Simulated scan of single mutants.
Amino acid sequence: MNSLRSIRALVFDLDGTLLDSQKKLSERTQNALLRCGQLGLDLFIATARPPRSVKALLPSIIMKNVSAVYYNGAYCRDLSGNTSSFTISPAIAAKIITQVCRNKEQDKLSIESEDVLYALSNAVYEQNRKHMFVPPTIVSDKSLASIPANKLLLFRCSAETKHYIMNFRAQLSVVETDAGELLHIMAKHISKASAISTLCQKRAIPMRQVAAFGDDWNDLDLFKACGYSVAMGNAAPGLEKDATMRTGTNDTDGVAQVLEKWFLD
């Protein structure tokens, strides 16, 4: 492993990592982030969330100092405000939507498209408010299939639906989080790691000089791609095996603990 002095960029997952169990950013962690930025380290957020909820959760002073990866890599914004968007094949999205409706699971499906949430009914919002900040725009199944989808999201879908989706693994990136409760579906080769790599290339930062912090399986690709990786104390069981080290939980300022030890003390 390279010297810690070689680290030039820091990447943070949001839920379960930067944010505590109450979805708050502690003052200690906020100060550690800002001080690292003042030292010249590039800061990145990499999350499954859409832009609107990240903006609602993080203070504006943090948002001004980070580049952001949303939808597990399907939508990105750099420090200059430039965005990149990657969508699922319309034909494949239409097949999945048809299958979901055939299985009468339309109340478990939503689509994210460049910070707009779409669904077939309000039931998906009523049943999953902890994952959604705003009610969706309601459209018909035909209209839904025509929307460029950065991400399809299924909440507690049946094994039959999940099996059907897995038939498209050669053309899709499929990630389970929240102990299998959520199924995130993006275009093939879309991941937090691919998005961070692209953003870092623009800054001439090699991935070996990047440190990633995370707690769930959609952070695994980052752990493998970055030179350093830190699993939270509350991480999904087994994730720490692919991490450089483990820190405290998100409720004990685990991120700040590492930043202070590495760069600030």
Rank of each mutant, 00 (worst) to 15 (best):
D20H: 08
G40Y: 12
D20C: 08
S21Y: 12
N2W: 10
A9M: 05
R35C: 04
Q30A: 09
S26Y: 08
L41P: 02
R28H: 05
N31I: 02
Q22S: 15
K24P: 00
D20P: 06
L33M: 09
L4Q: 10
F44K: 00
A48I: 02
L4Y: 12
L33G: 03
L14W: 04
L39R: 14
S6I: 09
L33S: 08
L14C: 07
S6H: 14
S26A: 10
L34G: 02
G40P: 08
Q38N: 09
D42C: 10
A32P: 04
R5I: 09
R28K: 14
L14Y: 05
L4E: 10
L19E: 04
R5K: 14
T17H: 04
L43H: 01
R28A: 08
C36L: 11
G37R: 04
I45A: 00
A9D: 02
S21L: 10
V11Q: 03
I7A: 10
L25A: 13
A48Y: 05
R5Q: 15
L34V: 07
K24V: 02
S3Q: 14
L10C: 09
F44S: 03
S6C: 15
R5S: 15
F44G: 00
L33V: 13
K24E: 06
L14T: 05
S21Q: 13
C36Q: 07
L43E: 01
Q22N: 15
L33P: 03
A32T: 08
L14N: 03
T47C: 00
V11C: 14
D13P: 02
I45L: 07
F12D: 00
L19Q: 08
R5C: 10
K23V: 08
Q22D: 14
N2H: 12
R8Q: 15
L14R: 01
A48P: 09
L18E: 12
R35G: 00
L18F: 13
A48F: 06
Q30L: 15
L10Y: 03
I7D: 01
L39E: 10
Q38R: 10
V11P: 02
V11Y: 01
L41M: 13
E27R: 09
L34H: 01
L39Y: 08
R8N: 09
A46W: 05
G40I: 11
L10G: 04
F12W: 05
D15V: 06
D42E: 15
D15N: 11
A46F: 11
L41W: 05
Q38A: 14
V11N: 01
A46Y: 06
